[in-house]
Structures are given as C-alpha cells and as structure tokens.
C-alpha cells in the first residue's frame, strides 16, 4: 500500500528494474567516491551532475523531482559558511560586520563551493536511489551487503508501522490544534504548558506504540511465530547485473583518478 509520504515513484524504467543490490552498492560507491574527490575538481563534479540527471531522465522520475528533493541538504551548508572567511588565501573582497572585518578568500570560496557541490551531488544520488527502489527491495539489498539480519528484520517491521504512526502523530497534532485554536507563541498558555502538552502527546504515542507492539506480537504468535525470522534467500545476480555493477565501480574509480589531474 503506497503512502503519500513514501518517496518511491512507481515506474517500469530500466533504472527501476535494475536489481536493488546493484543500485545500493553503486549509490554507496558513488557517494564514497564523491567524498574522496579533491577540492575544486569542477569538471568531474559537472560530469557527475549530468550523469545523475541523465539517470533521472532515464528513470522517468524527472530532473525536477530530484532537484526539489535535494533541497533538504541545503540548510546544512550554513555549517560550512565560515570557511569562506577563515581560510588563508588570496583575498577577493572584505567587508565590515559590526566590529569584525570579514575577508572573503578565493581558497575559502573554492572549499565552500566544493563542499556544497559534493553534498548536493550525494543527496541527488540518494534521492534517485529511493525514488526508483521499493524499501522492501532495499531491505534485501541490505542483507546482501551483510547488514545484521536482526536489524534488517526490525527495519522491515518498522516500515510497516511507520506511516501508521506518522498519521497517528498527525491526528494528535490536529486534535491539539482543534482544541486550542492553534496556539501560537503569543497565546494559549505558557511555554512550559505547551511543552507539557506536547510531552503528553509523545507519552501517549509511546504507550500506544508499546501496547500495539504487544498486540502485534500476539498476532505473530497466533500465526506461528517462534522467535526465529525466516527470509527467502535472494537469487544470485545475473551476468548482466554483475557487468553493470563492475562497470559502474570502474567508472567511479576512473573518475576519482581523473579528478586528481584537475586538483
């Protein structure tokens, strides 16, 4: 049952059909390669950007969708902003801010933009992965790369109840807003009171979760659960999928060495 919050975009493209194990490993390798790229390897960054966009078009998810979702990492760029002014290097411009003089350096600008570019590329790869791969297939892929079985089983059961609880939390919030006419900062009780109400909602959600987990457990028992989770082993990768995996990793490795030339 697809949920409005599930980022998976159904489709039948070649990217959708590619085995989740191949996609997960390539996405992780891509993000690792991007992290290892030197500062200012702009031609490689650009190549990767167009590569990701080409995949977005090929997967019929669309470049716009990927761009919109990729904005989530933008606010964090603030953390790297001080680099602009504290890095030694040729000065570009300087200005007064209160009693401080901030000097923008070329080296600082290059470092900041490189971090922002790496972050943006990485998040687009992750968006592409989750918008073309069902979470259940990702779970199989996680098993294949040796994520502990208990953890994968917990992820899979968590996924079943995730949206249920998200909607439950939303209902709690709507109920509170309805009762208190959407209390804002300037009305409706003290800060401590508002916090206590929210704390009560979280406690309420916890108890619902705790009691639901007992019901889920009994339902599992009734269906023969004995504490052991059995999963079907995934079929081995086909020759074609193995080629795609090998070529993808070779391409990323090649890009990394090419990037050393530009640095």
């Amino acid at each position: 049952m697809p949920d409005i919050l599930d980022p998976f975009q159904p489709g039948g493209s070649a990217v959708h059909r590619l085995d989740a194990r191949v996609k997960l490993v390539l996405a992780l390798a891509g993000i690792l390669a991007i992290a290892a790229l030197p500062t200012g390897a702009w031609p490689v960054f650009t190549f990767l950007l167009f590569g990701i966009w080409a995949l977005a078009v090929l997967s019929e998810v669309g470049v716009l969708f990927v761009l919109r979702r990729s904005l989530i990492a933008v606010p964090f760029a603030l953390a790297a902003l001080p680099l602009l002014f504290v890095t030694d290097g040729p000065s570009l411009t300087s200005f007064q801010l209160g009693r401080w003089t901030l000097t923008l350096t070329a080296t600082g600008l290059e470092r900041f933009l490189s971090i922002a570019a790496k972050s943006w590329l990485s998040v687009q790869i992750a968006v592409l992965l989750t918008s073309t791969t069902q979470f259940t297939d990702l779970l199989v892929a996680m098993r294949a790369i040796r994520v502990p079985r208990l953890l994968v089983v917990i992820f899979s059961l968590m996924w079943r109840y995730l949206f249920l609880f998200v909607h439950e939390a939303t209902r709690l919030r709507i109920a509170r807003d309805a009762r208190s006419a959407e209390v804002s900062a300037n009305s409706g009780g003290t800060l401590a009171w508002r916090a206590k109400v929210t704390g009560g909602m979280v406690g309420n959600l916890f108890l619902r979760g705790y009691e639901r987990s007992e019901r889920v457990y009994h339902a599992m028992l009734a269906r023969g659960y004995d504490g052991e989770i059995r999963v079907l082993e995934a079929a081995p990768l086909s020759a074609r999928e193995r080629w795609i995996l090998a070529l993808g990793i070779a391409l990323l490795g090649g890009l990394f060495f090419v990037s050393l030339l530009f640095a």
């Binding site: 609880f165 998200v166 939390a169 800060l191 979280v202 959600l205 916890f206 705790y210 007992e214 457990y217």
Partner: peptide, 28 residues
C-alpha cells in the same frame, strides 16, 4: 529481551520516528 523484541523495537522505532514530528511553538 525475549522473542517479542522484534515487534517491540520495530514498533517503537516507528513511534519515535513519528514522535519527532510532534512539536510546540516557541517563538517567532
């Protein structure tokens, strides 16, 4: 934990995930 660990931990993980969406206004 006994064999109810899987449903307990999974359901409470979903609960914490959803609980992170509950908030109260502070200021501005």
């Amino acid at each position: 934990l006994d064999e109810r660990r899987v449903p307990l931990l999974a359901v409470l993980a979903a609960m914490i995930f959803a609980g992170q969406m509950l908030n109260f206004s502070v200021t501005g």
